[in-house]
Amino acid sequence: MFNFEDYTVTKAKRVNQALEEAVPLQYALKIHEAMRYSLLEGGKYVRSIVCIACCELVGGEEALAMPIACTVEMIHTASLIHDDLPCMDNDDLRRGKPTNHILFGEGIAVLAGGGLLCLAFEHVVSKTVSFSSERVVRAIAELSSVVAGWVKRVGGRADDGSLELGETGGGSDEDVERVRIYARRIGLLFQVVDDIVDVTMSSEVLGKTAGKDLVSYMATDPKLMGVNNAKKFAGELVAQAIEELTCFDAAKAAPLYRLAKFIANRDN
């Protein structure tokens, strides 16, 4: 029987180790210290685990997906560092710890986020060596769309779905499209649930400032449709995501099935 907790804990440890190696303490020391502070430990690595699970779904191995999984985590962390800045969301708590700029200062935080973003693309190009050049280019195109979505989010809100995808390990175009749709559904699901817990949980539970979206007058789903309708919408997104997995081997799809349920039921 598939053990979801063991699977995610094991994958998260391996992702963390790979990130440790990818971002060592080196010159410029303070910037790399800030990069590692936000990147390592404390995160759930959900996006990275989804990348690995998608690769395994179509017959690939964890090692093939790890460079892209790390790259996705770098891009995501860069977005969090910059989102928390005083000129953006102006938050001082992330994952239960002081945000990057609170600990290192605004200047270092800006450089740390930018450094992670640059390193992300260097990493995927230099470490993804087992795929054809055509597949690597497709992966870079997917990742570039993530960054484009991040830029759009500066002025409002972007669909985070592509952030979950990366590039799969040998799947057909049809396989890739099904995984892409699944990823978009759970990406939107993640945001909807994030908005729900923002207004229903305390800062202690969340590990970040509760109610921040409403205070900032952001167009969160609970504000637009109410908490109950937002929860109903989340349930619909779970069903739509899982529907995309029905054509795959059930055992290989189990991690992605459970991940959708995990995202829907999280409280932080």
Rank of each mutant, 00 (worst) to 15 (best):
V199L: 12
D195P: 08
V179K: 05
L206T: 09
I186T: 09
D173T: 13
L206I: 13
D194S: 02
I181W: 13
D198P: 08
E177G: 08
V197N: 03
R184I: 07
M201A: 11
V179Q: 05
Q191N: 05
G187R: 02
R180Y: 08
L163A: 07
G170V: 10
G161T: 01
V199M: 05
S172A: 04
E177V: 11
D194V: 02
E177Y: 15
R178T: 12
L189T: 04
E167W: 15
S162Y: 04
L206E: 05
E174F: 01
S202W: 02
V179P: 02
G171E: 03
L206D: 05
I181Q: 11
L163N: 00
V179T: 06
F190D: 01
V176N: 14
D195V: 13
D173E: 15
A183P: 04
G171W: 05
I186D: 04
V176L: 12
L165E: 02
I186Y: 02
G207P: 10
L206M: 05
E167V: 14
E204D: 10
A183G: 09
G171M: 07
V199A: 05
L206C: 10
D175F: 02
G207S: 13
G187M: 13
Q191D: 11
L188P: 11
I181M: 12
G171N: 04
D195M: 12
D195E: 12
G170H: 12
L206F: 05
V192C: 09
V179N: 00
E167H: 15
V205C: 07
I181K: 09
Y182E: 00
G187P: 03
A183I: 05
R185K: 15
A183Y: 02
E204I: 15
R184C: 08
E174H: 11
E177M: 15
D175N: 15
E204Y: 07
F190Q: 04
L165T: 10
D198M: 14
I181L: 12
V179S: 02
T200M: 11
G170M: 14
I196L: 03
S203A: 10
V193N: 06
M201E: 13
L189C: 07
D175Q: 14
G207E: 14
G161F: 01
S162E: 01
T200K: 08
V197G: 01
L165C: 10
L206Q: 07
G187C: 03
I181C: 03
D194M: 02
Q191R: 07
G171C: 11
S162T: 00
G171L: 08
G166R: 15
L188V: 15
E204R: 06
V193C: 07
E174Y: 10
V176I: 12
T168R: 03
I181D: 05
V192R: 06
T200Y: 03
G161V: 01
V199P: 12
R184W: 12
D160S: 09
R180W: 11
Q191S: 02
I186W: 10
D175S: 15
M201R: 12
S172Q: 06
E164H: 08
L188G: 01
F190W: 13
R184P: 02
G187Q: 09
G161N: 00
L189P: 03
D175R: 13
L163E: 03
I196C: 04
D173H: 13
G161P: 01
R180G: 09
D198A: 13
